[in-house]
């Protein structure tokens, strides 16, 4: 019998995952979705071909604790800032985490513009989970 009320535990982390724009590389983000689920998080998966507007709307409605995107097609220097700007315009203080193919030289640029964490090929499950938990903890 489940008798304890849920709010005595650590609140469940809710993460919105999406592919922004046309990039169709979704193997990694789907793996990440399962990794986060298996770490006890609730993952709202938006899928492919999302816009900054659809991601902002989902983040609001789902009360997301974090937003995770993956970028593989070298559009990150345009796409990540446009996502951050959209979050800023909507007055949403939610950490943005990015995975995929990000050349080393671009990491400081993205971090400088406000991306909370960046993970690349081969990132182990543990690192993925830690990055999300850490980014969420840093904002609360």
């Amino acid at each position: 019998m489940a008798i304890e009320s849920t709010n005595t535990e650590q609140p469940t982390i809710r993460v919105v995952l999406a592919k922004l724009g046309l990039d169709g590389h979704d193997r990694g983000i789907k793996v990440v979705a399962r990794i986060l689920r298996d770490a006890g998080m609730e993952v709202v998966y938006l899928g492919l071909r999302q816009t900054t507007a659809s991601i902002v709307a989902a983040a609001e409605e789902e009360d997301a604790d974090a937003i995770g995107l993956s970028m593989h097609n070298a559009g990150h220097l345009a796409l990540a800032p446009s996502m951050l700007a959209a979050l800023h315009d909507a007055d949403l203080d939610i950490p943005l985490i990015i995975g995929g193919i990000i050349p080393e030289a671009d990491i400081p640029i993205l971090e400088g513009s406000g991306v909370a964490a960046i993970l690349g090929p081969g990132a182990p499950a543990e690192e993925v989970v830690t990055a999300v938990r850490g980014a969420v903890a840093a904002r609360t």
């Binding site: 724009g21 046309l22 990039d23 169709g24 593989h72 097609n73 070298a74 559009g75 990150h76 220097l77 345009a78 796409l79 446009s82």
Partner: peptide
Amino acid sequence: DMPTLMGYDSDSPWALGEVGRA
């Protein structure tokens, strides 16, 4: 590149950041 692969031109809003990249 991605816009070409998806049936969009380089001046489409969908093409942001993707023109000639992949």
